[in-house]
Structures are given as C-alpha cells and as structure tokens.
Amino acid sequence: MAGRKAGIKRPKQRSGIGLWWVIALFVLVVVSAFALPTVILLMLGLLPAWVAFIVDRGPGKAAGKCVMSLNVAGAAPYLVNLWTAGGAGQMDNAFIILTDPSAWLVMYGSATLGWLIYFGMPYLVGAIVEMRAEGRKGQLAKLRKAIVVEWGEEIAGVLPQQKK
C-alpha cells in the first residue's frame, strides 16, 4: 500500500504556480482593458509588495503580508483620488500621481514600515518572552531555596530517600 502510494507521481507545484501566473496575467490584461490607470498605479505603487511576495519563501509569506497590507494602506488615498477623478481624466491623474515624489514617498514609505515591522517584531517578541521566562525562573529558584532552607539539602537529592 505504502509502496503504491510512494509510486504515485505528484503534479509539480511549479506548473501550478505557472498556471496561476498565466491566470493573473490574463485577468490583468482583461482588467487593463477597462481600468488601465488603476492597474498602472497598482503595478507601480505596490511594487515593494510584489517584490516582498516574490522574495519571501517562508511558509506563511509573512513578509509579503506585512509589506502588502501597509503598502496598500499607503497607496489607498491615491487610488481613491484616481477613482474620484473619473472618466478620461483618470490616466492624466495617474500620471500626476506617479510623477509626484510625495506619493512615491508615502506608498514606498508605508512599504518600508511593513518591512521594519516584519524584521523588528521577532526581536521584540523574543525579548519579551525571554524576560518573562527569566523572571519565572528566578521565582522558582527562590521557592526552591526556601524549601531547602525549611527541609534541608536532602530534598534537593535526585532520588530523595524515604526516611524511616
């Protein structure tokens, strides 16, 4: 049974991802046909998020998620601005946004903040966990010391003998 299972050839994951890329490109092309300025803005404004998703090989793609969420938050005002312009002026508006350095600063700055959180948070969490563990260990050592003072060294023996 196990041998039979082992003999089953699994489809290569790479081909699945390739398929997703094809679908995404197809969707992009279709959406571009209707909302090209938005697609351009998203493609360029969310570039750090796309990069983060690509370079993050971790199981949960945490880096991608961190950068994406903040990058989207940074790009959101400009998207809204673009959509509120409406009609044929959208492309012009997109051009104005993309040529505005402050827009780049906001969008890419928020992505940077995402990276900072991604890299900084493990250190912060580690420090907190370590501090709490060391504190507890100290408490336990004190308790053991008090027990030894009250009951003698024998209680600390590996196999304390039952006294008669």
Partner: peptide, 19 residues
C-alpha cells in the same frame, strides 16, 4: 519561537495599522 511568533504578530500588526 520568537521568529515564528514575531512574524505572526508582525502580520497582525501590519494589517491592523493598515485597517
């Protein structure tokens, strides 16, 4: 542990800030 937990908290914090 801190890496796993930190990344988890980082994701949540990022999403929270973004929201």
């Amino acid at each position: 542990t801190s890496l796993v937990l930190g990344q988890m908290f980082a994701v949540r914090l990022s999403i929270l800030i973004a929201l």
